[in-house]
């Protein structure tokens, strides 16, 4: 009956989204009168794992095997399925990420589990197991009734506000049987921006569109992002034109973000763009056209030239 949370460790600590997933899982466990166990696969320090206690987990299962050192959605799904069985877990929680996305469906297939993706609230257990999720790319919400014995919840960023305690979790090693078929895909190379704040994890995002006129002008966007400690993003035409890499493109056909702050500079606010960003807590729009549709979806707006406004904001942010 317990709750199992899949967590990811990066640069020696639990990823922020994983902290949120653990806290969420612990809350669900509390509602169900049971406890939350965390599962981590691949190499990691015990100290990073014990931190799971801070977010409410009692125990961490650590699956170590040389074959698990590189993230592999299919193999990790096998590991989590084995842990689910060992723990008798009925609820599995994951924070959405490119790794978790590759796992949830395989897990649902293995365990014949009910599944809700893009979960944005704690479940309602008063009548079965009901959970709210974001659908139509953020244009609406659905209430999902999960009817299978095993339930998988993939939670969106900013679903719950994490509170920490001083508790630590006990760490146990876990050695599940691995499945050769899970290693049929060979990773030839990985290209990853390491120094920057990654967009899907970012609390603050500075995004820019075609109003910036060309890639050579992105310095003013990056300067503001740097001053705020924000990630950078862009509209679809900007990545189509190769002004910015594809992984920065947000919207209907790009990344969906839900940061605390989304600043849109020189973006008109097409419905397909809004779809990917409208669950941001606060939206700021900077556009020289007072009739730009984006102002209708903004909390703060500045009518003005991005080439003047962005540097002013940067200066003010640096002075904080």
């Amino acid at each position: 009956m317990s709750v199992l949370v899949f967590a990811e460790v990066e640069n020696g600590t639990l990823k922020k989204s994983s902290q949120e997933a653990i806290f969420y899982g612990a809350k669900v466990a509390e509602m169900m009168g049971t406890s939350a166990t965390v599962i981590v696969a691949g190499q990691s320090d015990n100290s990073a794992l014990a931190e799971a206690g801070k977010y409410g987990a009692n125990k961490v299962l650590h699956a170590v095997d040389a074959k698990l050192n590189e993230p592999n959605g299919m193999a990790y799904a096998t590991v989590v399925a084995a842990a689910t069985q060992q723990e008798g877990a009925s609820v599995i929680v994951l924070a959405k990420s490119s790794l978790a996305d590759a796992m949830t469906a395989r897990l649902a297939g293995k365990l014949k589990a009910g599944l809700a993706a893009n979960v944005i609230e704690l479940p309602d257990l008063s009548n079965g197991f009901r959970v709210k999720s974001s659908i139509y790319t953020g244009k609406a919400f659905a209430y999902n009734d999960l009817k299978a014995d095993t339930k998988i919840l993939a939670i969106k960023k900013n679903t719950i506000i994490v509170e920490e305690t001083d508790a630590t979790a006990t760490v146990e090693s876990f050695t599940p049987a691995l499945n050769d078929a899970d290693f049929a895909v060979t990773v030839k190379s990985v290209e990853k921006a390491t120094s920057d704040i990654l967009l899907p994890e970012a609390d603050l995002v500075v995004s820019a569109g075609r109003g910036l006129k060309g890639p050579e002008n992105w310095g003013i966007v990056e300067d503001l992002a740097k001053a705020l400690g924000a990630a950078t993003a862009c509209s679809k035409p900007v990545s189509d034109l190769d002004w910015r890499p594809h992984h920065e493109h947000v919207g209907q056909t790009g990344i969906k973000v839900s940061p605390n702050l989304y600043i849109a500079a020189g973006i008109s606010g097409a419905i397909q763009h809004l779809a990917g960003v409208n669950s941001s807590k606060v939206i700021v729009v900077i556009n020289k056209d007072p009739d730009a549709p984006f102002f209708k979806s903004a909390d703060y707006g500045i009518v003005g030239d991005v080439f003047e406004v962005l540097p002013r904001l940067t200066k003010a942010a640096q002075a904080l």
């Binding site: 014949k112 009910g114 609406a140 659905a142 009734d145 009817k147 669950s279 903004a298 500045i302 904001l313």
Partner: peptide, 30 residues
């Protein structure tokens, strides 16, 4: 097999009115 059923939908709450800031006073935003 249907393991997850949608029992209802909801639209997101409308955002409050936008607060406009003059470009010459952009610093106020921060």
């Amino acid at each position: 097999d249907v393991l997850t059923d949608v029992s209802g939908y909801e639209l997101p709450p409308a955002r409050g009115a936008v607060k406009m800031i003059k470009a010459e006073e952009a610093e106020t935003l921060i």
